[in-house]
Every structure is written in C-alpha cells, then in structure tokens.
Design a protein around this nucleic acid. Sequence first.
DNA 1: TAGATTTGACCCCG
DNA 2: CGGGGTCAAATCTA
Length: 308
Amino acid sequence: MKNKGSSCRYLPHSSAPCATDGARCFRCDHRPAIDEIVREQSLVTQLRAVVLPALETKADDGRAEIVAQLFGSILDCSRKVISALNSRYVGESPPDDDEIVDKRRAKRKNSEGKKGDDQVKVKPHEHKRSRRYTNSTSQITAVPHYDGHQWRKYGQKNINNSNHQRSYYRCSYKHEQNCKATKTVQQLDSAGETIMYTVVYYGQHTCKTNMSNAPLHVVETSTPQSISTTCCSDDLGDYSQKMENMHTPELAEVCSDELGSYHAIIGAEHSALGLEDEHMHKLLDTFACGALDLDSWEIDAIVRSGFC
DNA sequence: TAGATTTGACCCCG
DNA sequence: CGGGGTCAAATCTA
C-alpha cells in the first residue's frame, strides 16, 4: 500500500496521514476487517449447512439449487473482498494462479529445452501452487467437511510443529469441469473437548455444483471460535455497522450487498420452507447463539422440528 | 468394478 | 536443503 503523505483512505474516520516510506501503516492494517469477513464466511457456511439440507428434503423444485448458488456468490464475494484487502495491504495485486502456473510452465519448458531432449525427464507435476501469492481464506471449525461442495482427498502430510497431519482436498469436479478449488484441513492442538480444525480454501469454485447430489449425510456446521462468545441473533446488524466503521465505501457497498443476499436467502428460505416467523427466528437464533457444537444429526433434528 | 482413500515419491519455493 | 503441495500407483470399500 502506498500511503505517502496521504490521508488514510481505508479509515473513513481518519484524516491523519499514514506511515511513509513503505513502512507498514498500522492504521491501515485490515486484519480486523479480514477477521470479520472470515467470521462472516463461517457464519454463511454454517447457515448453508442448515438451510440447504432442509430445502432439499422439503421440496424438489430447484429452489435448493438457486439458494446454493446464492450462498456460493456470497462466499465468492467475501473471498474477493479479502483478496482486495490483501492486495491493497501489500500495495499490489498478486497475479492469479493461472498466470503463475503458466509462467512456471514456460520457465520449465525453457530450461528443459536447453538441457536437450535426451535429458528431459517429462514429469506430470506441472501444476504447482504458489505458496506465496495464492489467495486463500481460512476458517476454524469443528466440522470441516461439509461446506456445500464435494471434495476428494488427494494427500495427507505430517506438518512441522504440529501434532496432527494436514489433509489435502481438491474439488471433485476438478477434471470434469476444470475447477481449481482446493482446501487443506488440519486439526488444531486444542485443549478443549471440541476438536477444532483449520480449513484453508485456495482458489474459487468454477464448477457448477449440483447441490442435490451433495451428500446429505455429512451435513455439518462450521464453528468459528469467535462465534461462541460474540454471536447473537442481531449479529447481522452489528456486522453491518462494523463494516461501515471499518471499511472503504466500496467495501461497505460490497458487504452491504452481501447482507442483502443474506436477507434474501433467509426470506427465500422462509417462504420455501413454509416456516412460521416464530419457527424461523427460533431456528436462526438456535444456530446463531449457542448450538455450535452440535453433531449433524442434532442439527438435522432441530431443522426438522421446525417443520412440525 | 468403479470410485474414493492412502501413501510414498517427486518437485518447487523459500 | 528442508518443508509443503501434488501426483499417481496401490489399496480399500460399497
């Protein structure tokens, strides 16, 4: 971020100049904003895990697919916001994965060409992900597997300074639809009773997921650590206010759109499920306020009880 | 038997 | 050169 002598664009309430000479401007540190967005992603994931199975069991009229797409759009939007913040933070936009891969391919091709054909050892490992530039979003959750997408595990490794292995997943539609989304799941060294995992998502889904084919038996919620102490039913209002206070007008606009989608989805759910107001609010409050360590069957039971 | 998972090896980045 | 990400053969499972 280049802030030489200018007022801080990313702090609406600040007119003071930022740090100069490339030093990191602590006023422009977007980490609180990013943390909030990551938390928002967790909430959306959690909401999706509740809503989609309920929709799919209730009706087969395509609404589940629409709602799934809306959820996907919201999450994509969040990723873009984080990406934008990160790129502003370092002062330049990171090249996308394809660009990196292509450059690396070209580099390898060139070096191979110089070696001569007889020395070229043709290896299939040409799709290497950059560790440095790849945009990623992370979540801490007790149930890392259900997030509305279908994943296939392709690796597992021991990681330094960690007691637990890291698992590597790619989108199940990687080959069919050239979807480049991947994620890693690693258990945290937690002292509590609930086993928590760090889930890091890389890339965005370009696949058209057929949600009706999603495995309903693995419906789970994501459980961000921060939620257990701070989340409540009027969180969206607080969230909106925080966003307004923390971010640029353009980010506020993006986030405002997201909130609009939230309400649209909740409204759509309401009508699609045929829930009474009381039931819907009860349901949302349940998942927003406390039921964060529920197993999938418990969530399912709660959702179903809302129908009766 | 097809699809998913495991696991050792390979490769690149830092 | 070590750590981490990915590949693909072997193995497992429904």
